[in-house]
């Protein structure tokens, strides 16, 4: 499998993970280690940056985990930029998962605020990975302002519904010059494999692992699915045929 390069980092694993919803930080650590994930996102609002012994950060202090702070909780670009600067200072990384979802019910991203914040954060030197709708035009606009990747959603966050935005993800993947990470809605390893087979560069999974009966085993299942999907993509999947082989071809006369 080809390694994935985003910004200044090279990843062997194409499975990115979240840190919320686990029944304990210990279990989170075990599951994330089992997933092989090298990029884990953590909400600024959950960590106590003033304490040296924050429980979540303590359990993430493995060298293979690169931290990806996220701005969950902010409602607009101004708040996002402020939170990003705090996260950079506290967690000592300029990587950022930009999440602006002013709608606390479905946690759907605000395209306008996200684009504005992304532009400013790139100027401030951040490696920005924005969480967005599967909107191909928005993805190109984000690419133009200099984000390191785009993270379109498969379906609503935490919904486990899979790739309901499939048609638009295909366009995004086809057009994008920067890595495409499918984020949100991936509820089963088969969904992750499907995204990877389509040519997504990576997927981000949280709820499906954290809330399962056995998060460690589920993390391994996702690891395998992501690898399988990527390998299949690189090996060039046979496309299903759209046309039947006609027994009396309509264009045969041209050969006469």
């Amino acid at each position: 499998m080809k390694p994935l390069i985003i910004g200044d980092k090279t990843f062997g694993s194409r499975l990115f993970t979240g840190t919320g919803k686990f029944s304990s930080s210990q279990l989170m650590e075990e599951a994330l280690l089992a997933s092989g994930s090298e990029l884990v996102t953590v909400a600024l609002k959950r960590v106590d940056v003033n304490s040296n012994s924050d429980d979540i950060l303590k359990h993430l202090s493995h060298t293979q985990f690169n931290l990806l702070p996220n701005t969950s909780g902010v409602r607009n670009a101004k708040e996002a930029v402020f939170a990003a600067q705090l996260a950079r200072e506290a967690l000592e990384t300029n990587w950022l998962k930009l999440e602006i979802h002013p709608d606390p019910k479905y946690l759907l991203p605000d395209a306008i605020e996200t684009l504005n914040a992304a532009e400013e954060l790139v100027k401030l030197g951040f490696i920005v990975l924005p969480y967005i709708h599967a909107d191909p035009v928005l993805c190109k606009r984000l690419e133009e302002v200099g984000t390191a990747a785009v993270m379109p959603l498969g379906s609503a966050i935490g919904s486990n519904k899979g790739l309901r935005t499939r048609d638009f993800l295909e366009i995004i993947i086809e057009q994008s010059k920067i890595p495409v990470v499918v984020d949100a809605g991936i509820g089963a390893p088969s969904h992750a494999a499907e995204a990877m087979e389509m040519g997504a560069d990576a997927v981000l999974v949280n709820t499906a692992i954290a809330v399962s009966e056995n998060p460690v085993q589920m993390a391994k299942a996702f690891k395998m699915a992501v690898e399988a999907g990527r390998m299949a993509y690189e090996a060039k999947l046979a496309k299903p045929k759209n046309f039947a082989e006609a027994s009396s071809p309509l264009t045969a006369f041209l050969e006469d």
Binding site: S23, S24, S25, K45, R46, V74, A83
Partner: peptide
């Protein structure tokens, strides 16, 4: 809460997020 298989969360907001 732990016995029931859940985690008690003490911090889920940051004062910097409020205007």
């Amino acid at each position: 809460i732990k016995q029931q298989g859940y985690e008690a969360v003490w911090k889920d907001w940051d004062r910097s997020l409020v205007n």
